[in-house]
Structures are given as C-alpha cells and as structure tokens.
Design a protein around this nucleic acid. Structure first.
Lengths: 409, 409
DNA sequence: ACCATTTGGTCAAGAGGAGCACAAACCCGG
DNA sequence: CCGGGTTTGTGCTCCTCTTGACCAAATGGT
C-alpha cells in the first residue's frame, strides 16, 4: 500500500537541482530564451543564472549564442538553447495498426520519425520487439560520436506497469504480462533506461507539453483508438493512481442498457464511442481498422446519412462521458485525441452541446473542448518526453555520471 | 485561465522553510516524536534538526520535554511535541441540520467542540453568521493571553469559492453568492484569516489526515448528507480542479433512466443515493432530516423490509458510482462518510459487491472500501486543518510577523 | 562622439546543511 | 558503585549555493 512518502530533508544541493531542472525544463518546453529572460522567469539573480548555465553548458545540455540585435538599448543578452542536436531521446510506439520510431532532440525537435503499418494480428512480444529494433537499427549508424542518448520511451497500446516495463494486458496485441521493456533493452544494447507507458497516457502528456493543452494545469485528455484511453491532468500532473491505472476512462460505465464490453461489464464508454462501435453503427466492417475509419469520415463529410448518424451517436455519448469527467474533475480544457480528433471538425458542435447539456453549470462554463494538435504522432512524441523526464528532473545527474558518448553502434 | 505556474527559483530560505514545514507537519499529524526519530524521518543531520527545532521552540510552535527512560542504552532523546495548548485554530461549521464550533490545537487536540441543532429552513447569511458568532463568543473569554489563534476554518454545506470566501451556491441554506467569509471576519474581529470550504472537501481532508485514510495517497472520499459530496485525493493532494469544483461527485450521471435532479439533469448519483432518495424509498418523510435517517437505520437494523430494501438500493447505486470513480482514479482506498458511514455496518458487504461487480479487475483488486472514522465531526475537524495549513506550510512566517498575542477579546 | 540603458563578469558576504570531535546521559555487567 | 558500550546532544568548521555590489561591456539614441 502506497503510504504517504517519507519526509525528505532538503539541502543546498536540492536547491541547485531544482534550479537546474527548471532552466532545462523551460528551455525544453518553451524553446530558446535569452539569459535575461531566464532571470525574469525564475526570479534568480544574474549571478545565479550565470553559474547554473555554466554548469549546463559544461554538461553539453545547453549552448549560448550571440543573439540578433533586438533594437533595444543595453547590452544584448545571449540566447540560451537546449542542445537538441546532441542530447537525444529515442521514442518507439507499438500500436495496433502501426509501429513507429522517432529520434527527438532536447527541446522537442523531431530529427527523424518513421512509421510502418502492420496488420492487426496477434503477434509475440519478440516479433514486435524485433520489428521495432529493425526500424531503429539503420538510424543508429547515423548517430555521430558525441551524441548522447538519454533514454528510450515506448508507447504501447495496452496497460503497462511502469515500474518494470511489463505490459500487463494488451488485448489488441494479444499480450498478457509481456516483458517488452526488458526485451527491447536487450536487443538494442544501448545501455540507457527504457521507459514504457500507455499510448493514451503519452498522447495526453504530449498534448499537455507541446500541443493543445500546453500551459493548462487541469486537463482531460480522451483518445479514441481501437479502445478508448485517456489521461487526466490535475494540478499540472498526470493522475496515475495507486497502481498506475489512473485515467483509464474507456471502461467508465455510461449506459446500463448498453452492450456487453470485452472487459466483462456492460455499457462501458468504449462500447458506445470506441472505433468498433463507430464502424458497426455506420454499417462498416468492424475490423476495418484505420482505413475503414478514414473512409467513414470521408463519407460523413460528403453527407452519407448512415456515416453521419454514426458520428452523431459517438458525439452524443462522448458528451455523456465527458460531462461525468468534467463534473468530477472540473478541468479547464478537454482535449480529444485519436479518432475523436479526426471527427471533431464534423461533429465538434454536437459533442460540445451533448457535453454541456449534462454537466454542472459552473464547471461547464469554464471548460473548452478542443481537438488535439499532434495527430497520430501524439503518443510517440509523449514517449520521447517520457525518456527525457529524468534529465529534466535532474540535469546534473548526467554531468556526474557522464558516459564516454555513444559509439557508432 | 490557469496557466502552468511561473517557474520560481529556489534559494537557501526555501530549504529552511521546507524543512521547518516538514517537522511541524510531522508533529502535527503523527504526534510527538523524539528528536532522534525526526533525524531518522527527515534524513537531516542532528545539527540541522537541532537548529530547526530551536527556531520552532523560539516561535512557540513546539516544545521539548525530557522523555521517559525507554529502557534502551544511549543518551535519551527529548520528546518534541507541537504546542497544541498555545497554537490554536478556530473551526466552524454551517450545516443544514446544525451549526458547530471547535477550538483545536496544533497537533489535533480538540479543546472544545460544540454543536447546536438548527431547523432546516432557509435563513440569511447574517443570521447564520450571528448564530455562529454567538456560539464562539463565550469561548473567546476563556482564551489565555499568550494563546495564538492562527486562523479560522469554516465548513459550509454548499459550493464555495475559496479565494474570497464566497458561498457560490448552497441550495439547502437558500444562498447564492453569499459572502459568509467576510461576514464572519467582520463580526469576530479576531484579525486572523478566515478560510471557507465545502463540507465534503473538509470531511475528506479530515479523514485523510486523522481518520480512515491516514497515510494513504490515493483516496476517494464520498459523503452523504442532504446532498452527496466528495473529495478525491490524488498523489496525497485533494483534487481541486480549475475553479475549485473538483470532486463534486454528487451530480455524476449514473442512471439515464433515473429521476430528474435539482441540478437540471437526469439520473444524477444524488437522485439514487442521496438522503432524500433514501427516505422516499423507505416510505419515510423526505424532509425528515437526520432524525428520520436515524430512525430508518434503526428500523433496518431490526429487519424492517422496506427500510432494508431502501438501504440495499442505496448500496447498489453507491457501487455503480464508486466503480466509475475507481476505474477512473485507481485509488487504494474508498472512504464513506456521513450517512454512508452510518449505513456501512448494515450494507457494507452489498456496497462492496456492487462496486466490485462493475469495476475493472486490476483497479478493483487493490481498493479497500471502509467507513470513515470521524463521524459527523469530520467536516469541522477538516475546517481546523484548513486553518492550520498556512502555518504548516511556512512555520517561520509566524515568527517573522509575530503578533502581540491575542487579547482576552 | 557621448550618454543612458541593459546585461555580463567577478568577488565577498550570507544562509543553511553536512560532518566531525567531544561531552552527556542512559543501560548493563561485575 | 564503577567502568565500558551505546546513543544522542553540542559546538565548531567546512562546503554548497544564492545574493548583492561594483565594474566592464555592448547596444541604441542624440
């Protein structure tokens, strides 16, 4: 049982770590800033900022450049930027429809992103791991000596135990307690930590950091893929729950008169708004996958009655569940990802109306419902963020335990 | 719109504040500790603890006493305890059935607690404020010079905006935008801050700090009074939401085929498990209040069929809503307060069964459902905690701005 | 060219915890 | 009752990290 954390005494180094962390985080999330802007943002003195940046430059995490003349009087302040060319995260995604790999630099630059389709079939962990490694290998050769890979983040379409990188349950991949993390770590031999998380959690993380929810502290993110997943952000932090299953909104009961769900219950949200429900209701092949959904959305755009009706149904039930979440959590923003992001242009108003009809006035007045901005790549971008997290939390740790640099593999 | 907080640079004083805070918090929550236990708990050195405690003793927040010989070898470590005799919080409660006042010492000792019944009628803010002040006055005379009152916490049966102490909406008191906080501050003339919050939020806070949920970081608290309220605790902190309306679970839609609710929607949780629903279903006077509920529970205990059926109904629907919350939040503990606490001995098993039937396996396996431990006084105890919070967060602030002590009023 | 303005560089000062040596207070055994 | 073992308080210096003051550098405006 998770009892309340042991009190931990603070010391001077704690302060240093926190200050280094907030500088790197700021540069990573908001992009390059001048030294004087950092002074303003943090409230620290110029001397302190100087010292901190010096340490970060020595660690090759940031670099300073002469800034363009700004037209204002006074000595120009050099621009500080994250060394996205040098400090890298490898992001992977094991989705139902596709596998993907991305190489992302500190600061968020996506150096490379490759996605390959895959058939919707159950395969072993080993096969998926091999395919992912195959996707990564050619890229590894291009890494220059001196490039520092800080970690590997993996987005998985399933329930993941983060502590040990085991996929507890991934019905659409056919896995149960699959050790994907260890498997990837062994095959890649990169000697950096591998972090796994659920694709919806990471999609939400990505939208929160670099997408539609940037800057918002109270966010409900709901993503429609084969299943329905979500990430609830409260006070700026994802709600993980006692065992990491927080935010699993797909199996919220919404319709007692509804259909049986794969989870054993009846009337789960997923049975009303999931991809399968959408396709069936529109008279499409329920196993048609992403292609069928695209076709459906196209048809609805051209006014096909059945397609439109299916979307309206999803919109209405999306509203029911969102109202519940809004009443409970009082978010400022709802971000729709995956399929919901794609259908938003067509039925955004219907979703909005259905939601407002059922949510409490004071909460509903405040909230905005918006589509995500990152599309299908949200989860893999979130995976990169996951891999960067330890560096952001304690940038000096890298300086302390500096590895000789990544060989050309 | 609440954007993510500005990065704030840390300095040495931040460390001091954090360390002072964790010591006072530890003593406040866990009771007296020896100096060496504090060393172990915080990980700080003996020297550091010594300095910190010295500062707290100077501020009259804690005191040291020779401890009883413990039978172990080694120099005995003095016992450090919060000065609950000296540092006080005043807690008030404006409930539908009663008004209450409590004087609570740092560390949680309840020096005095008085509750008076009140008829269920709409009255003005001024009347309630006057009644509360009348309850407090006699006690003020007994305060010794030197006693330090740190704040006033008020639990209100309604939706409260914490920032300015305005009761936005309290249907059962008949208020809308009532400035109870200001009104109390004026009448009491105590020159300390007045903090208002919702009774369910404070009930949850109290159970989390000193009741059934002590030590748990992921908690769902649901309280049945006239309405149904709740407090969701994630990562050890109450989930407040963007405007402070987080945790308002009473109007979660659970039954699309259900009854219309006062809020305008249909099938809110409250319409199935609220006090009124319980009484009506048991064939009692829906406006019978606390007395009618007590009678009902008594009757059910003796096996009256109708009373039992009503309780079973509540238990079943309690399960539906709890399952939703459990699936979404993955708590380790569900605490039932108010009426639900009282009916737990009778229908605890039914609640448990109904909940488990509908919640996802991995989340359900972990969670325990327990009744609260603080009974009707949970909210007022939470109100005292609310008033103490600023002192716990920054104990040194009191030292810096020391007031001459409270006169005999 | 000169001045106001803004910012970087340097260094001493202040805050605060760590670490160490020593003393104090307890238990126990003879 | 006395000495050894053990644990903890006390007092001191050292180390880390930020602040603040002073001066130099770089830019725009007149």
């Amino acid at each position: 049982m998770t009892t309340s954390r042991d009190v931990v005494g603070q010391r001077s180094e704690t302060v240093r770590r926190a200050n280094l962390s907030s500088i790197v985080r700021e540069l990573h999330l908001r992009g390059p800033l001048s030294r004087s802007e950092l002074v303003a943002r943090t409230g620290l003195t110029r001397s302190a900022i100087r010292g901190l940046i010096g340490e970060l430059v020595a660690a090759d995490l940031v670099e300073e450049r002469r800034s363009e003349p700004a037209g204002t009087p006074g000595r120009p302040s050099p621009e500080v930027r994250a060394r996205g060319d040098q400090t890298l995260a490898l992001a992977l995604e094991a989705n139902v429809d596709s596998l993907a790999m991305a190489l992302v630099g500190l600061g968020g630059t996506v150096h490379r992103l490759e996605r390959v389709d895959r058939p919707r079939a159950h395969v072993t962990v080993d096969e998926i791991a091999d395919d992912l490694v195959g996707l990564v290998r050619p890229m590894l050769g291009d890494l220059r000596s001196g490039d520092a890979l800080v970690g590997i983040g993996v987005a998985v379409a399933g329930v993941v135990r983060r502590s040990d990188g085991i996929v507890r349950h991934a019905p659409n991949l056919g896995w149960r307690d699959a050790p994907l993390g260890d498997r990837l770590a062994e095959s890649l031999e990169l000697d950096v930590p591998v972090w796994l998380a659920n694709e919806a959690d990471l999609g939400g993380l990505a939208e929160h950091r670099r997408g539609a929810a940037a800057g918002a502290d109270e966010v409900v993110y709901v993503m429609g893929e084969v299943g329905v997943g979500g990430n609830l952000i409260a006070a700026g932090r994802p709600l993980v729950g006692a065992a990491g299953y927080g935010g699993e909104v797909g199996h919220m009961p919404v319709n007692p008169e509804g259909l049986p769900c794969g989870c054993g219950a009846v009337g789960c949200w997923e049975t009303e708004i999931g991809e399968r429900a959408l396709l069936v209701r529109a008279g499409r092949d329920p196993d048609g996958g992403r292609a069928a959904v695209s076709e459906l959305i196209g048809a609805a755009g051209e006014g096909e009655a059945r397609a439109c009706a299916a979307l309206e149904h999803v919109a209405a039930w999306l509203g029911v569940g969102l109202a519940t979440l809004i009443n409970i959590l009082n978010p400022q923003l709802v971000v729709l990802g995956g399929v919901f992001e794609r259908i938003h242009p067509l039925v955004g108003d219907a979703i909005e109306a259905a939601t407002r009809r059922r949510s409490l006035r004071p909460s509903a007045d405040l909230v905005r419902i918006v589509p995500g901005q990152l599309g299908v790549d949200a989860p893999i971008i979130g995976a990169a963020e996951l891999a960067f997290e330890p560096v952001l939390a304690d940038p000096a740790a890298r300086l302390r335990s500096r590895v000789p640099a990544l060989a050309s593999a």
